[in-house]
């Protein structure tokens, strides 16, 4: 499983980098991911000054702006703890692109590489490090499709961990959809620069997911979910996608962190 998870057999502490999309648009996904991590006995630190990995500007052709934003995150993870990110896309940005972004400066580059080496996508962390016992989870039968973001699949190689989480949950049937490896059409600013093409991709993706007869679908990326759920809402159909952390929390019957200890 990549990226290499830091050599901590049983980490006590982790950082949580929520991402800007989760912070502003999908806070439940962040709360649910934290609930799962805490349920596994971890102390989760949320550095309050965190904002964004810089990806939106980076992929649009404004790397200098991305660099300034990424720079503002570099000091937020001083302890050698894993940094759990509930997004393959933002984790990919930090893991692969931060070291390049800071390559011109030896000192910053060193810190970026250190952070990059500790970044781990949520499902990858759950499967590779947490070793959660999922057998006790709710076993009510449910058919679920999985949408793996392109960055999760191709940059972070976490397709298998996403599938592994679902496979380990009793009662969950994974519904494979047609052209599963294909992009949902989000692509950050691509979705608004080429709206008709993006919409055609989102439409095809949702038709394929709906054709499986699943009752819900999950993804580890809120960018894709914003795109797909906003399209579904406009269509007026009841199907919705959820962050895999929310689905996992519910199946594990873990209370939301807000009602927790």
């Amino acid at each position: 499983m990549s990226p290499p998870v830091p050599a901590l057999p049983t980490p006590r502490d982790v950082y949580f980098f929520a991402t800007c999309v989760v912070d502003m648009f999908e806070p439940e996904a962040g709360l649910d991911a934290i609930a799962v991590l805490e349920h596994a006995g971890l102390r989760v630190t949320f550095p309050e000054a965190q904002t964004c990995c810089g990806q939106p500007a980076y992929t649009t052709g404004f790397p200098e702006e991305a660099l300034r934003v990424a720079r503002a995150q570099l000091d937020l993870f001083p302890e050698p703890w894993p940094i759990v990110v509930p997004s393959g896309s933002c984790a990919g940005m930090i893991h692969h692109h931060w070291p390049r972004l800071f390559a011109h400066d030896a000192e910053l580059s060193k810190r970026a590489r250190d952070i990059a080496s500790r970044v781990v996508e949520f499902t990858d962390f759950v499967v590779g490090t947490l070793g959660l016992d999922l057998a006790d989870a709710d076993d009510a039968p449910v058919k679920v499709a999985l949408h793996t973001s392109c960055s999760a699949r191709r940059e972070m190689d976490t397709l298998r961990s996403g599938r592994a989480v679902l496979a380990a949950l009793p009662g969950v049937e994974l519904a494979h959809h047609d052209h599963e490896s294909e992009c949902c059409g989000f692509g950050g600013t691509f979705s608004v620069k080429h709206p008709e093409i993006s919409a055609a991709m989102a439409g095809d993706k949702l038709d394929a997911i709906a054709a499986t007869g699943c009752s819900t679908f999950v993804s580890a990326d809120c960018g894709c979910l914003l795109n797909l759920n906003s399209t579904l809402a406009k269509r007026g159909t009841p199907l919705r996608g959820r962050h895999v952390a929310s689905f996992l929390r519910e199946r594990l019957r873990i209370a939301s962190v807000e009602h927790g200890p």
Binding site: A18, V22, D23, M24, F25, E26, P27, E28, G30, L31, F46, E48, P195, E196, A199, A202, G203, L226, N227, S230, T231, A233, K234
Partner: peptide, 14 residues
């Protein structure tokens, strides 16, 4: 065009 408008959540995660 094909999606409902983006709206922030009532309260942010932080």
């Amino acid at each position: 065009g094909t999606r409902v408008a983006l709206r922030p959540a009532p309260r942010s995660l932080r």
